[in-house]
Amino acid sequence: MNNQSSITALMSSFGRAFHAENEDHPVFTDHLAKELMTAEEYTAVQNYIQALKAAVLTGTKQYVILGAGMDTFAFREGEFLAKHQVFEVDHPLTQKDKIERITRAGWSVPDNLTFVPVDFTKDNLAERLTASGFDPSAKSFFSWLGVTYYLSTEAIDTMLAALSELCADGSTLVFDYPDENFFDATEKRVQNTIMMAKAGGEPMQSAFSYKELEKLLEKHGFLIYELLTPDDIQRNVIHKAGADMKAFEHVNYCLAVRKN
């Protein structure tokens, strides 16, 4: 996929689409994801919204999707977009490819959606976001899902430093991350995922224990507000939805709040 969307972006889009179409009791429904993928890509690859809406009740004004990939939130949540600003941040080539797919699908880009092309290895995130209309003084919600796996610890540290600079007091950051046993896990689907990422040219690099994560977040002014382990997700999300699936082993979800 030269000069196109990353394989991980397509895999994430496929996962959302496949789940929505094939699960009798879906935990998360995204019926638009498939429209951004070609039939070939779809065949070949075969809770955060609730947190966001809760944050809105406490004054959150802006929603930033980091590493947005093929995320379709802005096209599914018209009511939210009518009142709040949404910024999609991703690599310029990934965004170019996504915009072409949006055009091919016949969709219209909402007025309150702003695409912010950022090469995280070279560009200054704070500068690019503020230049695109982001207000650092406003309470914001940052979604950083499906990304930390592929970054080095140093790159994650750099990103948290940039987010700390951008976040007004009380802003929220939600992200997923693999625990310290991820790379040595015995579960076949964990090892398959690691191998697929490596084969796709985007090898997974980082994993954290709770204490390591807590220390890293505190360094940049973030406090862990809620953390969901696979057992928590199984019990509180999947079982409540009545879905017949199993939470992915060794993957946790963290909600952190910026406190000055």
Score class of each variant (00 low, 15 high):
L81M: 12
L173Q: 00
T172G: 01
D176L: 00
L216W: 01
T158Y: 07
D90S: 05
A74G: 13
V89L: 03
K61A: 09
S6I: 07
L10Y: 04
Y48P: 15
D97F: 06
N112G: 10
L223H: 13
L227W: 00
H25A: 14
V86Y: 01
L213W: 06
L66Y: 01
P92I: 09
K122D: 01
S12C: 11
D90H: 04
D157T: 13
L81G: 02
G221S: 08
F18D: 03
E212I: 03
H239V: 12
V147C: 12
N252F: 02
F182C: 11
N181E: 12
N112S: 14
G170C: 12
T29V: 12
D90R: 01
D179L: 03
R101P: 10
A20P: 06
T43A: 14
Q191K: 11
G221I: 11
F80V: 08
N3V: 08
L217G: 07
N22V: 12
F175R: 00
S137P: 09
D232K: 02
T186K: 12
E180G: 13
E214P: 06
T72H: 01
F183S: 04
S5N: 15
D231Y: 06
P136V: 00
L255T: 15
Y150D: 04
S5C: 15
L163C: 12
T103W: 00
G242R: 08
E202C: 04
G69S: 06
S171R: 07
T193P: 05
A126K: 03
L145V: 06
L81P: 04
T229P: 09
G69F: 10
V190F: 03
I99K: 15
T193G: 11
S152H: 04
K96R: 11
H84V: 12
K122P: 08
G170E: 05
S140P: 12
L113E: 13
